[in-house]
Nucleic acid binder design. Structure first.
Lengths: 133, 133
DNA sequence: CTCCTGGTTTGATGGTGATCGAATCAATCT
DNA sequence: AGATTGATTCGATCACCATCAAACCAGGAG
């Protein structure tokens, strides 16, 4: 069992996994069909993870590069390393990022599928017939 | 001054408004350039608004139709009307929905631009050169 | 093996948030 | 005007969360 096994396995994969193959990633938009209670319970935590300014910047920072070392993340925020770790864990458990330890350092990268799923959910391609007051 | 003026004017329009015309809607992706501290402060509350299962379903319910009466929203949740109102206010202040009173009833509708802005932010078109561990 | 550095976990704390019931406001009906 | 229904606001309560400092764990260097 790899060193950081436990740490790196706590991803919830809440969006993609445990979904009945059919519509893959809750696939087609908040507006097309009402989100079920189960979907909401699964998706809301992901939005919540992005609902903190620190984590949003963190996710962005990670997403902007193939991978980022924690030691490069920490100095970008005026927070204790414990707090940084806490936020990274939130992002991890939301399935938004993954990590791996390589020697001394731990590297994080974004999970594009997770972002993509959220993006698709919010996409308004041919939505609602437009509101006319 | 219209009756529900105060109530319906508390939208934050956090995403679209008060943005220096240039890049319109923070326009092109979490991954392309790191979200600034100001952007994060403006955008995180919108994600937070969607970060609750009740509000996510609520937003979806509203988005699925041109407009929805509060009296049609309330019975869809096992919550007091006070709590429903609280959540609707959160969505309103996040700029995700707008409302208008017409006679006895109050109608809510989705703000597609807000959803679109979030969707664009999360979109992963040609992002990161892919992670190779 | 013993230090040192990088990260995570733990415990405690102050602040925020979801919820309810009651009070209030808005508009319509009698 | 008074009564009724729809919706928001208020006050209180309980749970959760962001944060820090300190303890702890993992690797590498002396």
């Amino acid at each position: 069992m790899s060193p950081c096994f436990d740490m790196c396995q706590d991803s919830a994969m809440s969006i993609l996994e445990s979904v009945p193959q059919e519509q893959a990633v809750t696939c087609c938009g908040l507006a097309t069909s009402p989100v079920t209670q189960e979907d909401a319970a699964r998706l809301a935590p992901v939005f919540k993870a992005l609902g903190d300014p620190v984590r949003l910047r963190m996710a962005s920072l990670i997403a902007a590069q193939p991978e980022v070392c924690v030691c490069d993340i920490t100095p970008a925020f005026d927070l204790s390393s414990g707090t940084i770790s806490h936020h990274l864990k939130q992002l991890r458990e939301a399935g938004l990022v993954s990590c791996e330890r390589r020697g001394t350092y731990v590297f994080y990268w974004i999970n594009p599928e997770a972002l993509g799923a959220l993006s698709a959910l919010l996409a308004v391609s041919a939505p609602v017939p437009a509101h006319v007051p």
